[in-house]
């Protein structure tokens, strides 16, 4: 059974249809990359999976259990699904260690010392243990985004959603963030990435989905999507990317 099954999800804002009966399966330990033009619904899809947004029709299941519709305990759901945002969204009034231990302390009920140890362990894995007491605005964008990933990981999520996490970063800072994602992929973390980093998607993804007008227009292993795309629109999109020198 797939970890997440998205079944004909439909969502619109007013007259603008964002998801138009989109279906997608995410298996455990799979890294799924969502690519496609701006406004094709990548971010919305991610936000619907952890219920920051609500779909209007269709169904999303986690561990085979429907998580759309009324009465789903969202706090429990979000313990299971972590998300990292494009703009980091760290809490500016808390130090790095406070940022990453807030969830474990308040939600998981972890002890203070244990949470701190776990946080420091994860921080040193990404080479930021010396920044534990700093406040987010003293950190570079790349460092902030790495802390944001750690904040999500502290909850031991079954699934990690990454929403264009390198789009706001200067080019030379992108790799330090992608290295962590690569490392997580190797450790078997299930992840869904909305990304514009085609080279990275090609390297790290088990499955690439090209989204177009609210549906998965074409999906497959990266070798096929990037090497031998079938759909006209996929070809056109990739040609634009290559012409822009981004692949």
């Amino acid at each position: 059974m797939a970890l997440v099954e998205i079944d004909k999800a439909y969502k619109h804002y007013g007259s603008l249809v964002v998801l138009n009966g989109l279906s997608l399966e995410i298996k455990e330990h799979q890294v799924v990359c969502l690519i496609g033009p701006s406004g094709c619904g990548k971010s919305t899809l991610l936000r619907c999976i952890n219920r920051l947004e609500t779909i209007q029709k269709g169904e999303i299941r986690l561990h085979g259990d429907r998580i759309t519709g009324p009465g789903v305990d969202l706090d429990v759901l979000r313990r299971e699904i972590g998300i990292v945002f494009q703009g980091y969204n760290l809490f500016p009034h808390m130090s790095v260690i406070e940022n990453i231990t807030l969830g474990p302390l308040k939600v998981l009920g972890m002890g203070k010392a244990e949470a701190r140890d776990k946080g420091m362990a994860l921080l040193s894995r990404i080479g930021l243990s010396h920044k534990a007491e700093e406040f987010p605005d003293r950190l570079s964008g790349g460092q902030q985004q790495r802390v944001a990933i750690v904040r999500a990981l502290m909850m031991d999520p079954a699934l990690l959603l990454l929403d264009e996490i390198t789009s706001a970063l200067d080019p030379e800072l992108v790799s330090e963030v992608l290295d962590i994602v690569r490392d997580l992929a190797a450790k078997g973390m299930t992840m869904v990435l909305a990304t514009h980093e085609m080279g990275f998607a090609r390297e790290v993804a088990d499955k690439v989905c090209f989204l177009q007008e609210g549906v998965v227009y074409e999906e497959g292993p990266p070798s096929r999507i990037f090497g031998d795309p079938q759909g006209e629109r996929t070809k056109a999109f990739l040609k634009r990317i290559i012409d822009a020198g981004r692949l």
Binding site: L3, E28, L62, H63, G64, D65, I67, G71, V72, D73, V76, L77, R79, E80, A158
Partner: peptide
Amino acid sequence: SVERANQWRARSRV
């Protein structure tokens, strides 16, 4: 992974 799914079901009880 079965364990994880069970844990999830236990937590997301009605």
